[in-house]
Simulated scan of single mutants.
Amino acid sequence: MRTYTTSQLGRIVLIHLGKGERVLESVEAEVSRLGIKNGILLSAIGSLRKACLHFITNTDDTAVNRFITIERPIELSSAQGLIVDGVPHFHLTISEPDGMYAGHMEPCCEVQYLAELAILELKGISLTRRQDEYGISYIDTV
Rank of each mutant, 00 (worst) to 15 (best):
I74E: 00
R66E: 15
I40H: 13
V64K: 03
T93R: 03
T62I: 11
H54W: 04
S43D: 04
E96W: 08
G46Q: 04
T57F: 05
G39C: 00
S95I: 10
T69K: 11
V87K: 15
I70L: 15
L48M: 02
S47C: 03
E96Y: 12
L48N: 03
I74L: 03
G81A: 03
I74G: 00
D61S: 09
L53I: 07
P88F: 14
K50G: 06
S47F: 06
N38Q: 08
I74F: 02
T59R: 12
V84E: 12
S95Q: 10
I56V: 10
E71L: 02
I68S: 05
S95E: 14
C52D: 07
A79E: 02
I68W: 04
P73V: 09
F55V: 06
V64D: 11
F90A: 04
N58G: 07
I70F: 10
P88H: 13
N65Q: 08
L92G: 01
A51C: 14
A63D: 14
T69A: 05
S77L: 15
L92I: 09
A51S: 12
P73I: 08
A63H: 06
E75G: 09
H54S: 10
D60G: 05
V84G: 08
M100T: 14
S77K: 03
P88V: 13
G99D: 12
E71T: 01
D98I: 07
F55L: 06
T62F: 12
G39I: 01
A44D: 09
T57G: 07
E71F: 01
I94K: 11
Q80H: 13
I70N: 11
G99N: 04
E71C: 01
D98G: 01
D61G: 08
E71Q: 09
K50T: 12
S95R: 13
N38A: 00
I45Y: 05
I45T: 12
I68A: 02
P73E: 12
T69L: 03
A63C: 08
V84D: 11
H89D: 15
F67S: 10
V64G: 03
R72M: 13
L42P: 10
E96G: 01
I40D: 14
S77Q: 13
N65L: 13
C52R: 13
E96C: 01
N38G: 07
I94G: 10
R49N: 09
F55S: 09
E75L: 14
I83T: 11
E75A: 11
I40W: 07
T57N: 05
P73T: 11
E96Q: 09
S77V: 15
G39Q: 00
E96S: 02
A51Y: 07
Q80P: 08
E96T: 00
D85Y: 00
N38S: 15
R49W: 04
M100E: 15
C52W: 05
N58L: 03
V87R: 14
L53E: 08
L41R: 11
L53F: 15
